[in-house]
């Protein structure tokens, strides 16, 4: 078990900068999720921790020890890959045994440790099979078992659930979280799926274009987004962002009008989450663009002059397309962002 410290990390690929001046302190036993869109630098960051990439500048420490010049095989980290990366020529038993063999763990311990790891991921009956004879979920569990069998200091997981179907993903999420709590191993988890990030993380790091946008607990990130990128990335559907102007304590945009802090003026972006909008009210006028009942909730899309706004309406809500609709906002839950996208007020 160990803490991880990234200090002023820069990673360049020729003239392209993949990660810019990154500072991150991951505490012992923490479950940290790196979240961001494709190409934001999250996987590069993880690969640098693993030793599969070398930082152009900066320091990486695991358990206080400088890791920059230490080869991947000598870092005590285990990684679960997106494509599972199981050895196709070996049985699952041999796959799980491989790290024990390579690290010269006494043979007498092998069988017990392999079976214990397989039990943890409920893979006991499949140990003699080859990876090709297992389903996607079983393969992913085999990859997890291979990672946990050697009791590493750090787990790294690179989008481990992205190849699974939605139902399996949900059950594997619970399993991974449970396993991490039980093993108490510092875990860095990379994903572009915000639901995974919100449900698994102790803390989330949101990245974009190689730069950390915000670090915080899932609640913190949801309730207090630092900028429009974070606001627009977290939430399903994400926060509505409406560009307009603020003047004399009022924010106005085409079809929208809400009170705002008196100190705001000029070009401002209003943020409001879909669940904080109500059908009826006088903050937004528009036309019904789409109504999507899902059973427990109905998603309503309202079109204003230059923008569509998502609203979580009641489960019974129905309205004809293109009918006029008025929407009210919970004014205690408004967010305001400046021209550079940074949060300037609200909530």
């Amino acid at each position: 078990m160990a803490s991880i410290l990234l200090k002023n990390i820069v990673k360049s690929f020729g003239s392209f900068v993949g990660v810019q001046d990154m500072n991150l302190d991951i505490v012992d036993e923490e479950f940290l999720v790196l979240l961001g869109p494709s190409g934001c630098g999250k996987t590069t960051t993880m690969r640098m921790i693993a030793g599969l990439e070398h930082p152009t500048e900066g320091e990486i420490r695991i358990g206080g020890e400088l890791m920059n010049d230490i080869d991947a095989r000598d870092r005590d980290v285990a990684m679960v890959f997106q494509g599972y990366a199981l050895y196709p020529n070996m049985s699952i038993y041999e796959n799980i045994r491989f790290p024990l063999r390579m690290r010269q763990v006494p043979k007498a311990q092998h069988d017990e440790r392999i079976r214990r790891a397989a039990e943890m991921v409920e893979l006991g009956p499949f140990l003699e099979r080859k990876p090709g004879a297992l389903s996607g979920g079983q393969r992913q569990r085999a990859a997890l078992a291979r990672a946990i069998v050697r009791q590493p200091q750090v787990f790294l997981m690179d989008e481990p659930l992205s190849n699974l179907d939605a139902k399996l993903r949900a059950s594997m999420r619970v399993q991974i979280k449970h396993m991490q709590r039980e093993l108490k191993v510092t875990t860095v988890y990379v994903t572009h799926d915000q639901i995974e990030a919100m449900t698994l993380a102790d803390r989330i790091v949101i990245m974009n274009k190689g730069v950390i946008q915000q670090i915080g607990t899932p609640d913190d990130i949801y309730s207090n987004p630092a900028n429009t990128f974070v606001a627009g990335f977290i939430g399903s559907p994400p926060m509505n962002l409406i560009a307009g102007t603020a003047q004399n304590g009022t924010f106005s945009a085409a079809g929208a009008r809400v009170p705002c802090p008196a100190n705001l003026s000029g070009n401002i972006t209003l943020g409001i989450r879909p669940e904080d909008c109500l059908v009826g009210g006088d903050n937004l006028q528009g036309l019904v663009y789409g109504v999507e009942p899902t059973g427990d909730i109905t998603y309503l899309t309202v079109r204003t002059a230059n923008k569509t706004v998502e609203i979580k309406a009641g489960r019974e809500f129905r309205a004809p397309i293109d009918s006029a609709i008025a929407v009210g906002f919970d004014t205690s839950r408004l967010y305001f962002f400046g021209e550079d996208g940074a949060r300037v007020g609200g909530n």
Partner: peptide, 21 residues
């Protein structure tokens, strides 16, 4: 698959072990 090679490196395998195994 390059990932398999990387997985083996992280599992502690040397280049020769990766080749033979």
């Amino acid at each position: 698959d390059e990932e398999i090679e990387e997985a083996a490196r992280l599992d502690g395998a040397s280049w020769s072990s990766i080749f033979w195994n």
